[in-house]
Amino acid sequence: MAVVKDTAVAAPAVRAGRLSRLLDDETRLGRLMLAPAILYIALLVGLPFFLALYFSLTDITVGSRTLHFVGLKKFHEVIHTPTFKLALKNTFIFAFVSQLLVLILAKILALALVKDFRGKWFVRLLILLPWVAPISLGSIGWLWILDSIYSVVNWVLVHWRFVREPLRLLGILDPRMPPMWLGQPELAMASIITVHVWRLLPLATVILLAGLTSIPKDIHDAAAVDGAGFWRHLFEITIPLVAPIMIVAVLFGFIFAFTDMIVIYVLTRGGPYNSTQVLASLAFFTGIDGGDLAEGAAISLFLFPLLVAAAFIFLRIARRAEVT
């Protein structure tokens, strides 16, 4: 009896000791804490990626469970098609133009928001809204704005005289035939870029804002005393100092623009006649709707090596530019 009693008392103490030993052991605790993140990356990022990589080297379709390894055949097949080439070109235009605009606009917004003024919190809230709203809903709003019949923009162009008349006299606008935002190749590309910029701007602004506020005030004061005007201050002090964080923001933006298709899917589905087709949307139409999963995977992975290289270079630059 006495023995039993003893162990009963001792057990909780031992357990508590083990737990606290674990909590004290930083190496083991660290591994334990990291486990969920690693599991998440492995299951939700790694697995789909390697699956896609594997698919692209086979002849899988959405309806088949048996598949054969065909090597790079799918890549060879698809890269010579005009649609693929067009989509590749569109992808680059889309990514570069939208990133350039995001960068410039985010910079302007962040510079404005870093200043103190009345109602700043409200403006900050407004700017964040596009990021908070689900992108599908946001895109549908834009679909409406740019619609061929019910476009708000066109309504303004046609019904507001002081807008219509100057444009008409300049020969930019034909009130009987207002612009088809999603129906003319250049306008459609401009439209999806606009929506993409609208969508990414909040994040880029917030990142840059964080970068700007991390610059010590003394540095700005020193530059002011040293005689720097607005542009010199911007280009020689502010931008170089936020450069590392800006590069990371740009990298994210680029990868996002290269791999995302939701805006295009909702607004144009690649049209008119493939003029806004990007690799991501083409991959979806080919792989899921068209059924050739392997070719879809090949299309979507085509730029992967390029993106990895870009990420590597960007991060290197960011590290080199790092300042303390």
């Binding site: 010590p216 020193a222 005393v225 100092l241 300042v323």
Partner: peptide, 27 residues
Amino acid sequence: PRARRIAMVFQSYALYPHMTVFRNIAF
């Protein structure tokens, strides 16, 4: 500030971290 013909040294020194000493002084 730039029109007042003054120079200032800050408690933190406020050196420009991305510039060499030469470029700091030359700024």
